[in-house]
Simulated scan of single mutants.
Amino acid sequence: MPRPPLTPAEYWDLYKPYRGEGEQPAPEPGRFEWTQFPGHGPGPELLGRPRTVLELGSGEGVDAVHLARRGAQVTGVDFSAFQIERARRWWTNEPNVTFTQADVCDFLVTEATEYDAIYSMWGAVWFTDPEELLPLVAKRLAPGGVFVFSHAEPGPDAHGPQQMRGKWLEGRQRELTVLRWQYTPGRWGDLLKGSGFTEVDARIVAPPGDEPLGTLLVRAGIT
Rank of each mutant, 00 (worst) to 15 (best):
P2E: 11
R3T: 15
P5Y: 00
T7F: 01
A9D: 13
D13W: 01
L14T: 06
Y15L: 15
Y18P: 04
E21L: 13
E21Q: 10
G22P: 01
P27L: 00
F32G: 07
E33M: 14
T35S: 15
G39Y: 11
G39W: 07
H40A: 00
H40C: 03
G43Q: 07
P44N: 12
E45Q: 14
L47V: 01
R49D: 14
P50F: 03
R51K: 12
T52V: 13
T52E: 14
G59E: 02
V62A: 13
A64M: 03
V65M: 05
A68R: 00
A68V: 01
G71E: 03
G71Q: 01
T75S: 12
T75I: 14
T75L: 10
G76H: 05
V77Q: 07
D78M: 05
F79L: 14
S80M: 00
Q83E: 12
E85K: 02
R88T: 02
R88V: 01
W90G: 04
W90K: 07
W90M: 03
T92M: 11
V97L: 06
F99S: 10
F99C: 10
T100P: 07
T100Q: 13
T100C: 13
T100E: 15
T100V: 14
D103K: 07
V104R: 09
V104M: 13
C105Y: 10
F107P: 05
F107S: 04
T110N: 09
A112Q: 12
A112P: 11
T113E: 11
T113D: 12
E114A: 12
Y115H: 15
D116Q: 11
A117T: 06
I118W: 00
Y119V: 04
Y119E: 03
S120N: 07
M121C: 10
A124Q: 02
A124F: 00
D129M: 10
E131L: 10
E132S: 08
P135E: 07
L136G: 00
V137R: 02
R140Q: 12
R140F: 06
L141W: 04
P143M: 09
V146Q: 14
F147C: 08
V148R: 13
S150T: 06
A152R: 15
P154F: 15
G155R: 08
P156K: 11
A158L: 10
H159F: 15
H159Q: 12
Q162C: 08
M164L: 14
M164H: 10
G166C: 08
W168H: 14
L169H: 09
Q173T: 07
E175F: 11
T177L: 05
T177A: 14
Y183K: 00
Y183M: 01
P185I: 09
R187H: 15
W188N: 03
W188H: 05
D190N: 03
D190T: 08
L191P: 04
L192S: 01
G194W: 04
G196M: 15
T198M: 03
D201I: 08
I204W: 08
V205M: 11
A206R: 12
P208M: 04
D210V: 01
G214F: 06
G214N: 09
T215Y: 00
T215V: 05
V218F: 03
G221F: 02
